[in-house]
Design a binder for these strands. Sequence first.
DNA 1: CTGAAAGCGCTTACAG
DNA 2: CTGAAAGCGCTTACAG
Lengths: 333, 333
Amino acid sequence: MSKATIYDVAGAARVSLATVSRAINNPEKVKPETRERVLRVIQELGYKPNAFAKGLASRKSTTVAVVVPDMSRASIAEMMNGIADIARVYKYSILLYVLESEDTPEEDILKEIIAAQVDGILYLNDEITEKQYEFLKQIKDSYQIPIVLTNTIYPESDDIPSVSIDYKQAGYEITKKLIDEGRKNIYMVSTVRKYMVNDLKEAGYLQAIEEAKLEPKIMRTSGRISINTEHFNEYFKGHRVDGVIAVRDSIAISFMNVARDNEVKIPDEIGVCGFQNTKYAMLARPQLSCVDVPIYDLGAVGMRLLTKLMNNEEVVEKVVKLPHSIVLRKTTL
Amino acid sequence: MSKATIYDVAGAARVSLATVSRAINNPEKVKPETRERVLRVIQELGYKPNAFAKGLASRKSTTVAVVVPDMSRASIAEMMNGIADIARVYKYSILLYVLESEDTPEEDILKEIIAAQVDGILYLNDEITEKQYEFLKQIKDSYQIPIVLTNTIYPESDDIPSVSIDYKQAGYEITKKLIDEGRKNIYMVSTVRKYMVNDLKEAGYLQAIEEAKLEPKIMRTSGRISINTEHFNEYFKGHRVDGVIAVRDSIAISFMNVARDNEVKIPDEIGVCGFQNTKYAMLARPQLSCVDVPIYDLGAVGMRLLTKLMNNEEVVEKVVKLPHSIVLRKTTL
DNA sequence: CTGAAAGCGCTTACAG
DNA sequence: CTGAAAGCGCTTACAG
């Protein structure tokens, strides 16, 4: 049972190793009889081609690198499901690279990825900086390796193919909803940390607010729950507010808790909306209205796009925007 | 900039490729001067050894396979963080395999993993069946490849090293807490789907209940939120209940929502506890008391154990249980 | 301390 | 349709 090699198969099937290789990779090039014989032997011996030898000889790895920040973000994890499902269909393996550590600079990781001879890179990192973006572009060009940005946006640039949703439009729509309910003091609660994606949500918010001739009010909070609570309490003490749009569901829920402690009625006194539509949006009380982001699809479509690129298939749409929707539940009128 | 090979380095440094290889892998075996020269050239050329050639020649991949069901489970994602951090420290790459599809049987995936020549396997799947367990054991023995079960338990067997927490004890303790509050009708809400881990929580619950001479009551629900709601409403209509222990935080929260709709006071009328201590336990109102499972550590320790096994270091403890704790918040007295 | 050479297990023109 | 042979880019005894 200990790993059979292609030689063992060739011997047992009474053919050359070239024929074994063909039977596996180009079945149509070998006579049906011999092909079947070879395949049968492969079965019997439980033979699986050594991935290293194959990769070395063919210069293809059928492996893609997926680079992510912090796995524990719900969105990242769910995207991975989509990625993995599509990867399986197209027979690609996934090499996972989790960024997030200061000690290993991203450039080193990218070099490691190159050394790993991956056929493509799926890059999910909505905190992408200009420097990182430029470096990615350089990698792509120098090594001729396809890269797809998934749910990570670098504005005004389509050098690297990407798939995401129109966050600005989504931000606009959800703000509009609150405006249409007659709310006048609508806050956007964003993050102190810089995420491109959140910038776009803010931009959409701003557009809607300005159109309605209201006053834009953006508050930035940390993602940490305990801090949020204090922060909200403090901040809203002196402010009038009748609408809140949070860039993440969890922030919206966090805000609602504070609101409840202060005995304000949702949605009557304050309308609240989140972003993402995690399962906790349903678990919250009142159930949270929010933008639904098709996270799984983002991963799946990103991976699919990458497979096309790797196969040199023609790709018309290099920047794909998936449709989103607004889910209205109990925190809006 | 396009990938330099070891030959290029050897040429530029005026040494043989054997020396280059040594300078990288066994620096102490080469004279400091030449070593430095070689290393400098490597820098200049941006040389990175081809992982395939290296793997093929050395029969080691410095790659581990991590096999998981469904990434989107919060526990899996957080464990991945721990795994990735430790993997990075010990310079291992991660090949990710997501199970979950009916069409690709697990055995095929495991064979693929073998073909990928990984040095070790980290297996996270708390739905492990006897068949799967036996197959894993066979893989481990046939191919002499280290495997570590992480947060996945197969009872009464230590053939495969594992790291987890003592779920039975945790179940016992959390139940005891509710009993000590004087509750008499304590339910455990578990899942219809079979998870070893949940069986153990139930066993702990049962033990505590029996010690206290109370009547054990286990209800099984699906994980789906919408179904839960109906289910709970229906189920508890005719029942007395003053305590609920859910095998997952989200189920506990789900239950609390139904309780609130029925205007029962938590924790006064019903004490509620969850398992895991996800961030949503803090986001829930009232804030959820629960067993804290050190998820990140589980992943980190599992990976660390695997590195030891791969290096043939001596391992005393083949079945490690990490400490857990009980976090008391507002859903208990 | 260093080099020449064999070998890891495949793929892929090139002949036939 | 099939085989012999070179080559992918490394590592690792074996000499020296």
